[in-house]
Design a protein around this nucleic acid. Structure first.
Length: 949
RNA sequence: GCCGAAGUGGCGGAAUUGGUAGACGCGCUGGAUUCAAAAUCCAGUUCCCUCGGGAGUGCGGGUUCGAUUCCCGCCUUCGGUACCA
């Protein structure tokens, strides 16, 4: 009997002392970079869901290593983040302390799972040595703009020189600059004015944005801290508050991020998510004149063909023109509406789609009809999409139609869809009517014709628009990277030079927000105010900052002179295989691609994309168990079991989650709370000490059980629902318990055996004993009467065939990330070797190496017992030899009209023609044919034979 | 609504290019061993059946000698996303 705990301890120490998994640049071997997504070290520790991807990537890494690659497989922590700060607010424990503790726990748990990380490369984002370079990359983004003509980032100095020579009219760059100026005007601007204009071109820039502001809590809230328009904590109202914040101009890279998706090996679904998120739409921008006003309204539309049906316009409530064009008579109505909009949070706006709006009193001129059309404002038009203004075509757009109907605005039909039954307003089909020169055209042609006309008239041009928005990069929080930014007396932003970085996060013990929703850093005035009167930026960066480039730092983690050395990055290039959850599809994976492309433009990295291949692992879900609280019970709380609640669907019950540790038959539909379970529940939730627990089996009250007839014990059945495994759902299963019982290797293989890696599935340990038995039988092959017993006899052809079949299958399956089938191939191998009583070294020696990536501890132990020195993980992976797989005979299934009727064995080299004749003469074939003519005999060599009658 | 993924025994799942449906494992049934149990081992296990067979991969069609696999139309579940002009 093998002592798993002892060998795990032994080899963990051995690997650490001997630096078994340490890796360095080695030009003699092909490199391979395998990366797991950066974990956030939460206080709850690892649960059984986390390791799923780590186990898969570890098996893959070990396999790559054993097939001659120099494998970089690092691990570290995404250590800045909101949970640690919230925890600090509740407990007073400094985020640096709780984060360090959590990381220690993670490190321990991860190394217990036998992962082959090179821990000498560990990094964490809250380390000043690391965030020095996060800050430095930010300063680089600040110093660059994106030029659409060169299609890459260029220095801001070169832009400044161009402005001095020719103004900005011809500059084709990503920007938020609203005015056009000449070279002369530029030279006439003050230093402050020039810097403000440059700010509108920088890749890291400041602008006014909106945050979820909660007055009562005095703080800014993240979207997921807001529920139904009120704060999750306390339920206080949340409004939108304007604040000047830092943004990253990710939109500049929209087109490149979209087209480069073609070249990377990511799942189809992930690419689609990113494509939709970037949301390219092709259309046309058109300027509308405003009656009695010099300004113009620019709109973006994909349906320029419907412009004859544009009977009014709508601006976003935040649109800059609103104040200018509102007439005195309408001022009150507009003010009232703006107040209403401001009181509504983003979330609320999305949740209830009410039709609201107000008339500005102003009119625009439809450039095609020359009609005056009213200008409204309405919250369904978004400031950040397109131009923040639309031409409304109520006859051909659902939202415009609802709006027009509510406010009594005119509707002109411009598209005849009678030829397209079933087409909705969204479909771009039909024949144009009531539209002058466009009449009679099909919609797609009319769109082209309208674009051409718009350009001829000089009132706009065909453009692409993207749904993607620039990234808000400011957080009014403590636990994040400080911006390397100081402001002078004119509020001009200056970057801190690299030799003065890192700008360290100042220490404090007060994590409450500063005044007016500022970051806690704003209260540390001796830090935020400099001796010369300049001030520091007091906001901090979001968690995505550190995770946007960490994969590069692993290549050269201790470098104080550069974010990564050219030598390291030219060797390791980029991540060959990235494994992680699809929940990062639009945040982390977008930002990292954006940063990488910027660094590529600067020549600082040799590749255009950071992650060549990406595999999404599924989630391991948990089962959440509930009992039902009668909402009408007030004095004495009354709980009922799941079947009582089900029987009374009209009664009002609250679903109360129960900690899964108390539940008997956990995970089964018949899960229940026994008397002990109820006792534990009450100990856990003392507020229910006096509650009554009612089930068909009896009643529990204050520790006493009254049983109903026919029952000998109480069972409160619980409702079982599959859901996310989460601390808040009380259904977290910790891997430590499983590994203690079965051993780490068993746990690793069981998680892989559950099914395809990309599929989500609920955790249950029902089948773990199958893996346990398999490992025992595997080890038993090597032992006789508790002693190692391996013979040097020649293996039989059958034994070699068994082994090489497994070798072939396992190699292929690992490459395909199909670990469940690789394991079953090894199971088949063990079963067959057992039947053959095989204990031959020539078979068992390769088998240890074959299983090594899956079961690193057991294999290492057996390898040593077999008398080898050196780690099994540094040996060569077995490769199959075709000669052992060749069979002299083939067993053919014999089918009549596609139905299998029997099996026949023929020599492998029997000619097709002979097979056809032999088969037809078989007794049972004759019986099935019953004299009917045989139309055809199909022989698929090595596969099957089909007789068609 | 839109986008994506997936529907196969009692359960997790397998079937590499259209070629033996249900590998492997769990569970269950029977047997061996045991005073007994656990553990272990052996055998069986898609469903129906008149023991000849018949049906069968979400449902309904189609292509094919042959379809879990390809095509058309639906249904269900899960995940993402949402006033995107």
């Amino acid at each position: 009997m093998i002592d798993y705990a002892a060998i795990e301890k032994k080899w963990k120490t051995h690997w650490k002392v001997n630096e078994t998994y340490k890796v360095d640049i080695n030009e003699d071997k092909p490199k391979y970079y395998v990366l797991d997504m950066f974990p956030y070290p939460s206080g709850a520790g690892l649960h059984v869901g986390h390791p799923l991807g780590y186990i898969a990537s570890d098996i893959f890494s070990r396999h790559k290593r054993m097939t001659g690659h120099n494998v970089l497989h690092p691990m570290g922590f995404d250590a800045f983040g909101l949970p640690a700060e919230e925890y600090a607010l509740q407990t007073g424990i400094h985020p640096a302390v709780s984060t360090a503790n959590n990381m220690e726990r993670y490190r321990e748990q991860l190394s217990n799972l036998g992962f082959s990380f090179d821990w000498s490369r560990e990094l964490y984002t809250c380390d000043p040595k690391y965030y020095k370079w996060t800050q430095w990359i930010f300063t680089q983004l600040f110093d660059h703009y994106f030029d659409y003509d060169t299609n890459k980032a260029e220095t801001i100095e070169s832009l400044s020189e161009r402005f001095a020579q020719e103004g900005n009219a011809k500059v084709n760059a990503a920007h938020t600059q609203e005015t056009i100026f000449s070279a002369e005007e530029w030279s006439g601007y003050s230093r402050k004015e020039q810097r403000d204009i440059l700010m509108n071109y920088r890749l890291a820039y400041r602008k006014v944005g909106y945050v979820n502001w909660c007055e009562e809590l005095g703080t800014v809230l993240a979207n997921d801290q807001v529920k139904d328009g009120v704060s999750e904590r306390g339920g206080y109202p949340v409004v939108r508050k304007a604040m000047t914040q830092w943004y990253l101009r990710i939109t500049a890279y929209a087109e490149r991020m979209l087209s480069d998706l073609e070249d990377i090996d990511w799942s189809h679904s992930l690419k689609t998510i990113q494509r939709n998120w970037i949301g390219k739409s092709e259309g046309c921008s058109i300027f509308f004149d405003i009656k009695d006003n010099e300004g113009q309204i620019e709109v973006f539309t994909t349906r320029a063909d419907t412009i004859f049906g544009a009977t009014y316009m709508v601006l976003a409530p935040e649109h800059d023109l609103v104040a200018q064009i509102t007439t005195p008579e309408q001022q009150a109505a507009i003010d009232e509406y703006l107040a209403y909009v401001n009181a509504r949070s983003e979330v609320e706006r999305m949740a209830e789609k009410k039709v609201t709006g107000a008339f500005t009193g102003a009119h625009a001129i439809n450039p095609f009809t020359n009609e005056e059309i009213p200008i409204w404002i309405g919250e369904y038009v978004l400031k950040d999409y397109g131009t923040g203004a639309i031409m409304a075509v109520p006859s051909d757009d659902d939202r415009d139609k609802t709006f027009a109907e509510k406010f009594g605005l005119p509707i002109i039909d411009v598209v005849d869809k009678s030829k397209y039954p079933g087409a909705t307003l969204k479909d771009k089909v039909g024949i144009i009517i009531n539209s002058d020169f466009l009449n009679g055209m099909e919609v797609p042609d009319a769109i082209q014709a309208a674009h051409q006309k718009v350009e001829e008239m000089g009132i706009g041009k065909a453009v692409s628009n993207y749904k993607l928005r620039d990234a808000n990069f400011s957080r009014q929080r403590y636990w994040g990277e400080p911006f390397p930014v100081v402001y002078d007396e004119e509020e001009i932003a200056h970057m801190i030079p690299v030799d003065e970085l890192p700008l360290e996060l100042p220490d404090t013990d007060d994590f409450k927000p500063g005044r007016g929703g500022q970051s806690p850093l704003a209260r540390i005035t001796d830090w935020s105010t400099l001796p010369n009167g300049w001030t520091r930026e007091t906001d901090t960066m979001p968690a995505v900052a550190g995770s946007s480039w960490y994969y590069l730092r692993y290549m050269d983690p201790h470098n104080d002179d550069a974010f990564v050395s050219p030598e390291a990055v030219n060797y390791w290039e980029s991540v060959d295989l990235y494994v992680g959850g699809s929940e990062h599809a639009v945040a982390h994976l977008m930002y990292a691609r954006f940063w990488h492309k910027f660094l590529y433009d600067k020549g600082l990295v040799p590749t255009n994309e950071p992650f060549k291949k990406l595999v999404n692992q599924g989630m391991i879900q948990g089962v959440i168990e509930f009992i039902f609280l009668d909402k009408e019970s007030t004095d004495i709380k009354r709980f009922v079991s799941a079947e009582i609640a089900e029987a009374n669907p009209d009664h009002d019950y609250a679903k109360i989650p129960v900690h899964v540790d108390f539940v008997s038959n956990y995970g089964n539909p018949q899960s229940f709370l026994s008397k002990d379970g109820i006792d534990q529940f009450i100990a856990w939730r003392p507020e229910y000490e006096t509650a009554i627990f009612e089930s068909p089996s009896g009643i529990y009250h204050k520790g006493k059980v009254t049983l109903n007839d026919g029952h000998d014990s109480i069972a409160m059945t619980t409702l079982s629902e599959v859901g996310k495994m989460s601390k808040s759902k009380f259904n977290v299963i910790n891997p430590d318990e499983v590994t203690a019982q079965y051993g780490t290797d068993c746990f690793r293989m069981y998680e892989m055996f559950l099914g395809p890696i990309e599929q989500s599935k609920p955790w249950d340990t029902m089948g773990i004993d199958g893996i346990n038995k398999f490992l025992k039988r595997f080890i038993d092959l090597y032992y006789q009467d508790d002693k190692l017993s391996v013979s040097d006899a020649e293996p039989t052809p059958a034994e070699l065939k068994t082994l090489h079949t497994a070798i072939k299958k396992v190699n292929g399956d690992i490459e395909n990330f199909s670990f469940n089938t690789a394991i079953s191939a090894m199971m088949v191998c063990v079963n067959e070797l057992r039947k053959a009583n095989c204990n031959k070294r020539a078979i068992l020696d390769p088998f240890v190496r074959l299983i090594a990536p899956f079961a690193p501890f057991i294999s290492e132990e057996l390898w040593e017992q077999l008398g080898h020195t050196g780690s099994v993980h540094h040996t060569d992976y077995p490769q199959h030899e075709e000669k052992y797989l060749i069979e002299a005979n083939v067993e053919y299934p014999i089918c009549i009209n596609g139905k299998k009727r029997g099996m026949e064995t023929f020599a492998k080299d029997t000619p097709k023609g002979d097979l056809e004749k032999l088969v037809v003469e078989l007794d049972y074939v004759q019986k099935w044919v019953e004299g009917k003519p045989i139309r055809k005999v199909i022989v698929v060599p090595g596969r099957m034979i089909n007789i068609v009658v």
